[in-house]
């Protein structure tokens, strides 16, 4: 059970990145750093990071973005479930195919969020989910290579 601190730290860094103030235009295309980190750990060490962690991380995201409590908890738990379900396939994909898978996962997350927000009566425009989905997919190769280095360096498995 080594590297717990590194996993925690990676989530903290992801949270900070998702809170750093950006200009309005960049805000709308900011990748979902927390989701990327969660997906990576789910694929790399599915025996340690899974639905439970996804749910807890989601609750923290809910509070930090002042969303409905449970909204991100639900979507991230589902994402974690899918990532674990697909992890053996995703691992052997070339990196651009991984990015496409991430795109699909992000679209899925967007759909769930849209449903929840629609039920509350404040459904935003569709671009709200499509732009971050694409930027997250584009950011995936960088994040993947970086996090693989980190994982190998600290020998987390």
């Amino acid at each position: 059970m080594q590297g717990g601190n590194v996993i925690l730290l990676s989530f903290i860094v992801a949270f900070i990145l998702s809170m750093i103030p950006l200009p309005q235009i960049l805000q709308t295309v900011r990748p979902e750093f927390v989701t990327i980190v969660l997906i990576y750990w789910c694929i790399a060490i599915p025996n340690r990071v899974g639905v439970g962690i996804g749910w807890i991380v989601g609750l923290v995201v809910d509070v930090s973005t002042d969303a409905l409590l449970g909204q991100h908890a639900l979507t991230l738990a589902l994402i974690a479930y899918l990532a674990i379900k697909l992890h053996q396939r995703i691992r052997i994909f070339p990196i651009w195919q991984q990015a496409l898978t991430i795109l699909v996962l992000m679209m899925f997350q967007g759909t769930i969020t849209l449903w929840i927000k629609g039920m509350l009566g404040d459904a935003p425009a569709l671009s709200v989910f499509i732009l971050p989905a694409f930027s997250t997919a584009l950011f995936w190769p960088v994040a993947y290579l970086l996090m693989r280095q980190i994982r190998r360096y600290y020998q987390i498995n």
Binding site: I16, M19, V60, V63, S64, L68, L69, G70
Partner: peptide, 28 residues
């Protein structure tokens, strides 16, 4: 989620998580 939308029962849970989030916000 319904609880949060309709009532105020989960506000204590929200506040306790917010205590965890505050150091991050302070850092940012």
């Amino acid at each position: 989620m319904t609880l949060d939308h309709r009532t105020t029962h989960v506000n204590t849970l929200r506040s306790s998580i917010a205590v965890l989030v505050y150091p991050l916000q302070y850092l940012v």
